[in-house]
Design a protein around this nucleic acid. Structure first.
Lengths: 190, 190
DNA sequence: CATTTGATATGATCTTGATCATATGTTGCC
DNA sequence: GGCAACATATGATCAAGATCATATCAAATG
């Protein structure tokens, strides 16, 4: 099943695409067909610099969509390369454009988009915090530590070593409690 | 005039709010009234930690909107504080929700939102690049240097000194040309 | 025109987090 | 049980960028 809001769309608009490792799904400059949803695997969006340098613009993981903006533009502005084989679905741009006439779809789209924007803004502010300790604390307040510390560290753009040390320092400062190995949470007291 | 897509909305939905310095427009936990557009001045969204630490979640500048997600939720999840006096407009959530029934508004919203998401994803990837030189180069490729170098540096979460040095190094390496003081652009040749 | 403000630019120093290394704990698997 | 893979955890070293300092240049202001 597709994630919101794309589950509102008719099946006719969906196309399973083969996503074997290293395959390029579309290239910068090509005419847009639509957006994509990653059901499993990973896809990188890359932009090519004037001298051929490749920059990763986005890493799409299972459950997320990419190239949403292509629905509103003529040409893709980056390349999409499969970094881990999996299932990927393409959704026709015409179908999405048409679906905006449906208020249910439109609201679902708006809800998803505004939440994502909010989350990204927050993350951008957090990764902008210089001090590892402050950054980790902000990440905790934002509720970003739900999986492993390693994942949390990657999200914060910190090495996991620095993250462990910051967590330890926060525990010693009394801001965080560490009830058991690998379990960190904000201390409610003081 | 309001920025897209909010210029599609009827005037009745708009309310000018007084935005003098330090004023709090809404607080975490309050019932949502709607989203806001900053016409001039600056507004910070702040989240308060369990021990009263304040974290900036977002800095809304002239021409941008904030609290868009409040349209889809019951309560504000952060505080909004005016950091620089200016003109701020509130837009009723009911009006926005209703406007999604209008395909023109819905598409305009979708276009704006998807572009913003794309831009933020790209910025998140760029600020995640450790090396100052690579980060600056990626920023240049992304076309982020349109204003001053100081603004560019802030966007990249780099000190402006480090940014100037990276630009100098890129010029010396032949990746960037510096035709005149303060003017940097990617070199097209080799 | 003199002054102020902010951007550009670069040098010197120092702090901090990246990196490398190592050890233990936990989980799943055959 | 033994092994592999990975998360947790912490120590040591080092490089890179932050910070502080200083100078020049440009534009705006009175």
């Amino acid at each position: 099943m597709l994630p919101e809001p794309f589950n509102h769309l008719p099946d006719i608009a969906l196309h399973r695409v083969s996503a074997e490792l290293r395959r390029t799904l579309f290239r910068q400059g090509e005419v847009t067909k639509g957006l994509y949803v990653v059901l499993s695997g990973r896809v990188h969006l890359e932009r090519v610099g004037p001298n051929g340098e490749r920059f990763v613009i986005h890493r799409a993981m299972a459950g997320s969509s990419f190239a949403e903006a292509s629905v509103f533009s003529e040409r893709y502005h980056c390349d999409a390369v499969v970094m881990e084989a999996g299932e990927v679905v393409r959704i026709d741009k015409a179908a999405v454009l048409a679906a905006f006439a449906n208020a249910g779809f439109a609201r679902a789209y708006g809800r998803q988009a505004s939440r994502q924007i909010q989350a990204q803004r927050q993350l951008l502010e957090i990764v902008g915090i210089r001090s590892a300790e402050d950054r980790v604390l902000a990440g905790l307040v934002a509720g970003l530590l739900d999986g492993t510390v390693v994942e949390f560290a990657a999200l914060l753009h910190l090495s996991h070593e620095a993250t462990y040390r910051a967590l330890r320092a926060l525990v010693e400062a009394g801001h965080v409690v560490n009830p058991s190995r690998g379990d960190y949470r904000l201390s409610t007291a003081t």
